[in-house]
Structures are given as structure tokens and as C-alpha cells.
Write a protein that binds this DNA or RNA. Structure first.
Length: 429
RNA sequence: GGAGAGGUACUCAAGUGGUUGAAGAGACGUCCCUGCUAAGGACGCAGUACGGGAAACCGUAGCGAGGGUUCAAAUCCCUCCCUCUCCGCCA
């Protein structure tokens, strides 16, 4: 949620920032609704004040044996007026909120306008591998090496799922363990969140109402109506709401945390044909880094998270680049995002394995998460997040980039300790 | 899933319709006394959000959440959420 005072007092700035996303907003309408809102509030409060004043005199009147009938009749009428004003108020507020909640976050000053095509690579590690033989793609490699079972996954669940098997499962778990151990070394707190979340969380992290259709809802047996929960699409949804409604003492900031969870996404209408295999699925594993920071700490924290994600991929030895996203490609809740994109030879493209973002106070405003400054004021915290990392594109990158002519795959050195010292995945004889 | 008990400010807790946004206690803060790893005393103590105002300040809301009854709700009624205890279920 954008700071309403900013919309009111610096409309130009907000309009310019949102314009970079190609979003046009009818600010006139917003300001008019707000004016109307305040008008009604004033009216209501004056009437309530009157009623409170009269009410406080009633006990004395009764004691003195005075007739209260007339006063009660007047107050009854006043009460009815208050009711009708309240109805008008909630209609105005509903209209205003619908607009405000739908506004995306403001991209930072230095973020350039436009969509994906304006993303700028700002860092590259390694180079595209050259093969003296005809390289295989990850689907073929993972299948032939017995790492991933697509067909039986479809049998158990449906299209867009896969099963890790044998050495594939070991590699997946080794990756997660590697990430976890690196984050622990950096002093980050390990969190395993609930994997089912209520709708408040969806709203708090800013994914609802816009993306409510893209998650999986879980109903109780028998399709019972009630509070619905959904399977988290990313641990971010959980972690952003961890301190919702709370006030954090400033000396506890920054909080550095990371969470592991499977992530569930409908990915309806996605590019199945070109994104074969595990490039995009309904369920995948991810370790997510989350930081809560003061506004002063937030920019340094962003750099820290980018560095952490970068180091993970570097230690794996994969060729990748970091892209600074253009305004239109940054997710609606964020001010700035750097993507870490790993090279997938068979697709001839860089694919995102980590997205590090600073949303500043946008999500905390929605989830009402504040911190108490040293001089006792309550301010909204900043929340940052970044994948550290998501695995589904790492495995394709590893098997494709590190494949050998005989169909074997070299295991990155940093993963070997987590795989009983295994150095190479050999084709089955 | 069933039965019961609860949810009041930082914590504990009193409060079953009215001048109570909330007794009391602890904690906390400031000060005093005393003097030494303690004890005593005085005073202060919702925080917050929103609205009005140049400001001082004034007002409104708020007792788990949301509705309702009433001139008036922490208090009565309804729905929901959460916690605890017992029972049941337990792939």
C-alpha cells in the first residue's frame, strides 16, 4: 500500500513513479473520495459527541426523577442519522479502498520505465559453456540419469508436476542443505513456516486480491464453507505476515531470516511448450530470504541480499547474470528487483533462479507491521525478500552446464559434502 | 469432532447496562529517603488509529473479530477466530 499522505501531498511524484509501470491512476477521483470521506467522518463524530454528552447526563436525570422520554426520542433520531451516515461512509471507504489496495508499489527513482525488454544485465559470472559434442537438454538428462520421473508424477497428481528420484532427490536435498548451511553461516534465522495460509496473509503480502486466482485453495473435507486457506505460492507470503499487527523494537532490527518451503502455483496459461521439464511447475522447493529493516538500513540490506544470492550461484560454479529489472517487470508489491538468471544452454536463455526485491513499507502497510523508533515513534518497517534460492532451474542448469560427452554430469564441489562425497552422476548401465 | 473454561492495557487481574477507556497489583519511568548488592516512600503511566486545528489543544473509535438489541454495551443476544482442560479420532 502506498502511503496515502504521499498520494495526497505529492500526487505528481506518485503519478510519475506509477507511470513508469504504465499504470494510469485517476488521482482526482481518489482525492475527491477522500474529501468526502473526511466530511462524513466529521459529521458522524460531531453527532456522536452530542450523544455521548447527553448520555452522560441520563443517570443524574433518572436520579432526580426527571422524565427522560423526550431526550430518548431525540437520541433515537440522532442514532438513526448516525446509522445512515455510517452507511454512506462505508460505501465511500469501500470505493476508495478498492482503488488504493489495487495500486502497485512505486518503483525507485533510478528504475527505468518500461517492461521486460528494458531489463539491464549489470553483472555476469562465468561464460556460456562450449561443448565439443552435441549437448543434451535437461529433460533428457534428468530422465536418462533417473533423477526426475515426470510420467509417474502425472499419474500421482497431474500435468506440471515432477518427482525427484534417487540421485535426483539427493541432488535436490543437497542444494537445499547447501543453501541452508550458507545462510546459517551468515547468522540468518532458519524458519519453517506453515504451508497453508489464511486470506489475511494473502492480502498482507499484497498478492491478494490480484493473484487470488493463482493459488490453490484448500477446503475442508466435504467442501465445508468457512475460512479458506491456501497453499503458499512462496514462503514470502508467510514471512511478510509474521509480525502483522505488531510493533518491533528498533534495536531488534534488522531481522535476518530465511525460510524453506515447497511453493504451490497454478501457473495457468503458462508457456508449457517451450518451458518443458522443471522450468515451471505447480510445486517446487525454495529457500527464501526475508529481512525486516528500518528505512535507513533498507538499501544496505538490499545489497546484502543480492550478494548472498549471487554468492550461492557463484559457489555452484554456474554461468549466470544479474538483471536490474525495469519498472514494468518488477512485481506489483516491490520498489526494486534484481533477478539472478542462470544460463540454460538448451533454451539459449537466462532463467530466473532468484529475485531479490525491496518492497520498502508497501507490505507492512497492508499487514500493519511497525517498529518503535528510539524516540518512541511507531513507523512502518521495511521488508525485503529474495530467493536464496529456488531449485527448479538450478538443476537444469547444473545438468546441462556440467554435462559430459558420455552422458554423465559433474556435481559442483560445494554440493559433494552433502552427497556423501559423490563427484559425478553416472549414466545407468 | 464432542464437552467445558477462557480471551480486558507491557503482565496479572476486577468489572453483568449509564457520570468506567476501565478498580487493584506487578512491571516500567521520574524523584525522595536510606545506604549497599536489598528495602521503603511520592508522583506518573493506555499505547494507537482517525478527524478538526497554525498551535495549545479538542473530538471520535477502541475490553479477541464482526454483526445485532438499546436513548445508552466491556457488560445482553448472534456468528466467527484463538487459547487451555477433558473425551473421541488418529491414514
Amino acid at each position: 500500500m502506498i502511503d496515502f499522505n504521499l498520494i495526497k501531498n505529492n500526487t505528481e511524484k506518485v503519478a510519475k513513479a506509477l507511470g513508469k509501470r504504465g499504470v494510469e491512476v485517476d488521482f482526482n477521483k481518489i482525492l475527491k473520495l477522500d474529501e468526502k470521506r473526511r466530511e462524513i467522518i466529521l459529521e458522524i463524530e460531531q453527532m456522536r459527541s452530542k450523544r455521548n454528552e447527553v448520555s452522560s447526563k441520563v443517570p443524574a436525570m433518572k436520579k432526580a426523577g426527571e422524565n427522560t422520554e423526550k431526550v430518548f426520542a431525540e437520541m433515537k433520531q440522532l442514532g438513526d442519522e448516525i446509522d445512515s451516515c455510517e452507511k454512506r461512509l462505508s460505501a465511500v471507504e469501500a470505493e476508495l479502498n478498492e482503488i488504493l489496495w489495487a495500486l502497485p508499489n512505486m518503483p525507485d527513482e533510478d528504475i527505468i520505465a518500461g517492461g521486460k525488454e528494458n531489463n539491464q544485465p549489470i553483472y555476469t559470472f562465468g561464460k556460456k559453456p562450449e561443448f565439443s559434442f552435441k549437448p543434451k537438454d535437461h529433460v533428457e538428462l534428468c530422465t536418462s540419469l533417473g533423477m526426475i520421473d515426470y510420467e509417474r508424477a502425472a499419474k500421482l497428481s497431474g500435468n506440471g508436476f515432477w518427482i525427484y528420484r534417487g540421485i535426483g532427490a539427493q541432488l535436490e536435498w543437497a542444494l537445499l542443505n547447501f543453501f541452508i548451511s550458507e545462510h546459517l553461516k551468515d547468522g540468518y534465522e532458519f524458519v519453517l513456516p506453515t504451508q497453508m495460509l489464511n486470506e489475511k496473509c494473502g492480502f498482507g503480502c499484497g498478492q491478494f486480491p490480484k493473484f487470488a486466482d493463482e493459488v490453490y485453495y484448500v477446503d475442508k473435507a466435504g467442501g465445508e464453507e468457512g475460512v479458506k486457506q491456501f497453499l503458499l505460492p512462496t514462503a514470502e507470503s508467510a514471512m511478510v505476515n509474521l509480525y502483522a499487527g505488531e510493533i518491533i523494537p528498533e534495536d531488534k532490527l534488522p531481522f535476518r531470516m530465511f525460510a524453506y518451503s515447497p511453493c504451490f502455483r497454478q501457473e495457468a496459461g503458462s508457456y508449457r511448450a517451450e518451458e518443458r521439464g522443471m522450468i515451471r511447475g505447480h510445486q517446487f522447493n525454495k529457500v527464501e530470504m526475508i529481512s525486516y529493516a528500518t528505512p535507513e538500513q533498507s538499501d544496505a540490506m538490499f545489497e546484502e541480499l543480492v550478494n548472498k544470492a549471487k554468492n550461492l550461484v557463484e559457489k555452484l560454479g554456474l554461468h549466470f547474470q544479474i538483471s536490474k529489472l525495469a519498472a514494468g517487470d518488477i512485481s506489483a508489491t516491490m520498489c526494486r528487483t534484481y533477478d539472478i538468471e542462470v544460463w540454460i544452454p538448451s533454451m539459449n536463455i537466462y532463467k530466473e533462479v532468484s529475485s531479490v526485491s525491496n518492497g520498502r513499507s508497501y507490505q507492512p502497510r497492508r499487514s500493519n507491521t511497525k517498529y518503535k523508533t528510539k524516540d518512541g515513534k511507531n513507523e512502518f518497517v521495511h521488508i525485503l525478500n529474495g530467493s536464496g534460492l529456488a531449485t527448479p532451474r538450478i538443476i537444469p542448469a547444473i545438468v546441462e552446464q556440467f554435462q559430459n560427452e558420455d552422458g554423465s554430469v559433474n556435481i559442483p564441489e560445494v554440493l559433494q559434502p552433502f552427497m556423501g562425497g559423490l563427484k559425478k552422476i553416472e549414466p545407468k548401465k
